[in-house]
Nucleic acid binder design. Structure first.
Lengths: 214, 214
DNA sequence: CGCTGGATTGAGTCCGGTCAAGCCTTGTGG
DNA sequence: CCACAAGGCTTGACCGGACTCAATCCAGCG
């Protein structure tokens, strides 16, 4: 497995990815299966190998907020506290590399290693700040357009796959599945994107998508 | 100046605060004056000494999202990238300590120092994740209640001051000033809080406040 | 005392949520 | 290979919470 470092993604930088491959234990997770749970002891670090993973937080009455989606090469929500602040589950069948934090510590001095972890955390924070702006100040249409745009950018192509369910997207954007569905229909009607099945789409008018994402 | 380390706040841990006091340049900022601007080079770190500071991001058409508020002892949005991802302005007359990042580097090896910076970044990320949940999944009333609760908790007393304007609160919570105002009136009507003037309030029923914050 | 700008209140609208069908895909068993 | 069931997605009708626009209030200040 080779993991390219691409500034558009949260890909773990080479130094970190390499160490994780050396020390990590591979773990297969079925769709919707948990990887860790909120308030669990956070003594392990996880790197996505294949599939996709979501991190979530729950409100007492069941309302759910998806904090982020993670793809091959991404560190799952790099945390440094004692306990996990959210849960992580597989969005579709996935595989992750898991390594004890204590084991990673041994490499703390290695060139580029410390920095690599910092980098991952920094990107996580930046992404979360972008997410804040989307949740707080964008309309339903802008939210969905932003989401499609980021999916396509991350995959670096006009055609992109969307491995998560409508419910996952809704909980990520602070909307309902019905609204997400309507906005997708609307964007298709305006020929901004074209869906091929329910989990794959192509950007047909980048300029319009950019504009609608605000 | 003594800065106590309190786990309820984003207060910079002693090691970091001490170094900043030794090396830092003191800067006075008037209400609404900028401290740094989005896309500026991020070559300095700022510690709030007095007053309060907000960090903001703007959308092209002027919509604004307040990312966070910072109080005495807090590091302002610890960033590690080359450029600032947001702007920082004084919410009211304030003073900050400013130190060049390069100067801080010299202390990278000092006991507890590295860890102190990590801690600050970690708390920033945790707080931002809480903020995500509020923006994405809470109602207007719950948002305002959560905000008042966090203000009171941070100040560790039933009576708390609210240095920022209604507009700042609205942009932090993803609401309009009118809605914020209505919710404040409503919470007062239910005797959950009592305002003394427009910038100071007292929590009269903690149980109710907790419940309304969801 | 009036001026000024922030805060509150009110009336009406609209965006996104709710509830309820209906559709389409996928998988399973006959 | 088809029939059928199950679950996810879409669509429609309606509703209501938050927004908009506008008037008024109020505190701070010259």
């Amino acid at each position: 497995m080779t993991i390219a470092h691409d500034s558009r993604t949260d890909a773990a930088p080479p130094a970190l990815a390499e160490v994780m491959q050396r020390l990590g234990q591979r773990l297969s997770v079925a769709k919707d299966e948990g990887i860790f749970t909120q308030d669990d002891e956070a003594d392990r670090v996880h790197l996505v190998v294949s599939g996709a993973v979501r991190t979530t937080r729950l409100l007492g009455d069941g309302r759910r907020q998806v904090a982020g989606f993670y793809y091959p090469g991404d560190l799952i929500g790099p945390e440094t506290g004692a306990l996990h602040r959210f849960s992580a589950e597989a969005v579709c069948d996935a595989a992750v590399l898991m390594v004890r934090r204590a084991a990673l510590k041994a490499y703390a001095g290695e060139a580029g290693f410390e920095r690599a972890f910092w980098e991952a955390a920094r990107r996580e924070l930046e992404r979360t700040h972008d997410h804040l702006l989307v949740l707080g100040r964008k309309t339903a249409c802008e939210k969905v357009a932003s989401f499609l745009k980021s999916l396509a950018l991350r995959q670096g192509a006009d055609s992109a796959s969307m491995p998560m369910s409508r419910q996952d997207v809704a909980d990520y954007l602070g909307l309902t599945i019905e609204t997400v569905s309507r906005m997708l229909t609307q964007l298709q009607g305006q020929s901004v994107v074209a869906f091929d099945g329910t989990r794959r789409f192509k950007v047909t008018r980048w300029d319009a998508l950019e504009q609608m994402a605000a």
